[in-house]
């Protein structure tokens, strides 16, 4: 699905001492599966995710998405791609405070009709949100419920790729486990990329990529086979 070649991201281009967030590496990602990207802070893992999801344009290199060069896309094409093919889950849920749970899911929906609303309700139900909570504002929902609403928002348009940036960082262990379980389920039909610095949540991943100072290595073998799902 993704074919990354010599991707390089430099911050502070105008300064004498350039800051390399990504130091030029190749990477191939499949059409489906749960891929974990792990690494310490400022290792470049979020930057990689933003480049893959078109939220950032790499300074150098190429990103092919299903054979299409993302670095050459116009802003409108990038917006369109994110709207139609990508889903996003962030560290914080970023739910709109004055909207109900269902309306928050509908924010991302490409169509705003009744069918989509029904679909949003079905997804919320599947994610364990009860019907009486559909009309509740985020302030009336627990942290775990909010994150599940955010997951529903990410999948409402049936995206081909879900980008999850530290999706469990603000959750307790139980909720974190549940969120990863849901993401694992979704990864059976699509590509789910999870960026985290918490190795423990990646035990069900099909592949783990470790980032360190802007460079990447496959670390799948670091997790014993018996701990992986």
């Amino acid at each position: 699905m993704f074919d990354v070649k010599q991707i390089c991201m430099i911050y502070d281009m105008e300064k004498e001492e350039k800051l390399y967030a990504l130091k030029g590496f190749d990477l191939q990602l499949p059409d489906r599966g749960l891929i974990g990207i792990i690494g310490p802070s400022a290792s470049g893992k979020s930057t990689l995710m933003y480049c893959l999801s078109t939220l950032k344009i790499p300074t150098e290199g190429s990103i092919l998405y299903n054979g299409r060069e993302l670095t050459n896309c116009t802003n409108v094409e990038r917006d369109d791609l994110r709207r139609r093919e990508f889903g996003f889950i962030f560290q914080k849920h970023y739910l709109v405070p004055y909207m109900s749970a269902v309306e928050n899911v509908m924010v991302a929906a490409n169509e705003k009709d009744k069918t989509m609303r029904k679909k949003a309700e079905e997804i919320l139900t599947k994610l364990g949100i009860r019907e009486r909570e559909f009309s509740k504002k985020p302030a009336k929902l627990s942290g775990g419920q909010c994150q599940r609403v955010a997951i529903a928002r990410a999948v409402i348009n049936d995206p081909k790729v879900i980008f999850a940036d530290e999706p469990t960082a603000s959750l307790d262990h139980e909720n974190a486990y549940n969120v990863m379980k849901i993401l694992k389920e979704y990864s059976l039909e699509r590509l789910v990329l999870v960026v985290t610095h918490d190795k423990s949540i990646l035990k069900d991943c099909d592949r783990i990529l470790e980032m360190w100072d802007g460079e990447i290595r496959d670390a799948s073998s670091d997790i014993p086979e018996k701990e992986r799902g």
């Binding site: 917006d79 791609l81 994110r82 709207r83 139609r84 962030f90 970023y94 709109v96 924010v107 928002r153």
Partner: peptide, 14 residues
């Protein structure tokens, strides 16, 4: 700002 950021990240055009 965050609501705007989110909507733009989700593909809303300017």
């Amino acid at each position: 700002t965050k609501e705007i950021g989110l909507r733009k990240a989700l593909g809303a055009t300017p």
